[in-house]
Design a protein around this nucleic acid. Structure first.
Lengths: 253, 253
DNA sequence: AATATTAAAACATCCGATCATTTAATATTT
DNA sequence: AAATATTAAATGATCGGATGTTTTAATATT
């Protein structure tokens, strides 16, 4: 009989409670802001010890589904899972998968050129202003010290926001976060920064013209350019070391 | 002074420990399979109570970073975060974002057509055989009872695996899982199933010819077709209700 | 009315006891 | 000697209660 039985893990009390509460949330019984009973009351309700219930609350908090507050009108409250939670999850997962820079670039080239195509049709003058300001800020970044990444992230984040697809926003931001957190590569040399500003400008120009194809092309070139910069140590790449310091790695030239 | 201070949440002991251990893993100090000290020992080492350390272990387990086993040679072991963990995270997050079907389709049309382009260049005869078997199995699915989704998921999963980008695999599978778990739409009518088999066949044929453009086109048509099927209740869509039963929702015609 | 104090609710932490599970070591049987 | 059964030890799981800390509501004071 070609049957496979999976090992049944002993039901842990806390896990059982976690699943019950998570289901209640995902099925709409519990709404954002709803308060769950206090540890003492809920433990009694489930007929378990306080510690077991506490562990369940901790796990649900780790999932981002609960917020737990101390104090008089404190307690456990249902919370909208925030982006940071899933970003962390992304980082945790991809850390072990350890994809190459090439894989990060590839997913970006799959998504972002198409994102700007949509942007070209939906973008408002206000959005354009935001993007222009972003580029200006990047151009005036002081050398070395500052990290381009914050402004760069903001630029791409704005674009996916304009495109208006919540799933795509999630993905683009998560991929970017994982890239930075895991590969820990941050460019700081002026030459590279200028190149980024230039390609950002090209993208914005295409968007101002409401030209989807031109915007898409500019984005493709931009991503490939950035990849090249990331792969080549030549020119100087700053790597964040374990103890938080910066190390300049010289290319083999 | 245009400064914004974020509220500092009181450092919880368990959270502090969680961060320390997570950092140790993400910085490579702890490797997969490494065993952490027993609750008793580690609690003493940190100078905290056993319960605080237990809560930290629970959270890390929730992150998918630890596996905790009971028994004589049990304990806490560093584990590779598995796909299920991040899929759950995806579901939790997207449940609250609640994107429309359209958004799910859009991200698929951004990624999967390009995935099959790559497949067309890398696919092996063995892969083709797998995909053909998958289609055959789907064609022979009994009516009603069976869910197309398992085989459908397997089909698309195989494709992204062939493409060989771990990030894209993660994304495609997570999006699919979220779609099924949150929108809870599963097609069971024979007509729809046949249509899916047909478009899958078209894709495989294009892949057998190693024709990227044809494969991409077939995939685009397939995704749009599926979307149409999902949006139109006409023809019968099965919806899993809260209590696990199936409800047939008739379209407004 | 503003401020300071007090009280209460709820989580945070700690402790230690007991139960359950798993595996290693040992004893027994064949 | 090998297979099997028993026992023991390590470790997590659960429990319950004691105490500390934080936050807010209620009260008292100025």
């Amino acid at each position: 009989m070609g049957f496979k039985f999976e090992t049944v893990k002993a039901n842990r009390i806390s896990q059982n409670i976690v699943e019950q509460i998570r289901s209640a949330i995902l099925e709409g019984e519990l709404k954002i802001g709803d308060q769950l009973p206090s540890e003492k009351d809920f433990a009694r309700h489930f007929g378990v010890s306080k510690s077991s219930l506490r562990e369940a609350y901790r796990v649900l908090e780790a999932y981002g589904l609960l917020e737990i507050r101390q104090g008089m009108s404190g307690g456990a409250f249902v919370k909208k899972v925030d982006l940071a939670t899933i970003k962390d999850s992304f980082v945790n997962y991809l850390f072990f998968q350890n994809p190459g820079i090439r894989e990060y670039t590839q997913i970006r080239t799959f998504i972002e050129p198409q994102v700007v195509k949509i942007c070209a049709e939906k973008i408002t003058d206000q959005d354009l202003e935001f993007l222009e300001d972003n580029i200006l800020a990047m151009e005036h970044e002081p050398d070395g010290e500052a990290f381009m990444s914050d402004l760069d992230i903001a630029f791409h984040k704005k674009l996916v926001e304009i495109a208006g697809n919540k799933i795509i926003s999630l993905i683009v931001e998560s991929v970017q976060t994982a890239l930075i957190n895991i590969k820990q590569i941050v460019h700081t040399d002026r030459q590279f920064l200028t190149a980024v500003c230039d390609s950002h400008t090209k993208i914005v120009n295409a968007l101002r013209d409401r030209d989807p194809e031109k915007a898409s092309q500019a984005m493709i070139e931009h991503i490939n350019e950035v990849e090249k910069g990331m792969l080549a140590s030549k020119g100087g790449i700053m790597i964040i070391t374990e103890n938080g310091l910066l190390k300049k790695e010289q290319g083999s030239q």
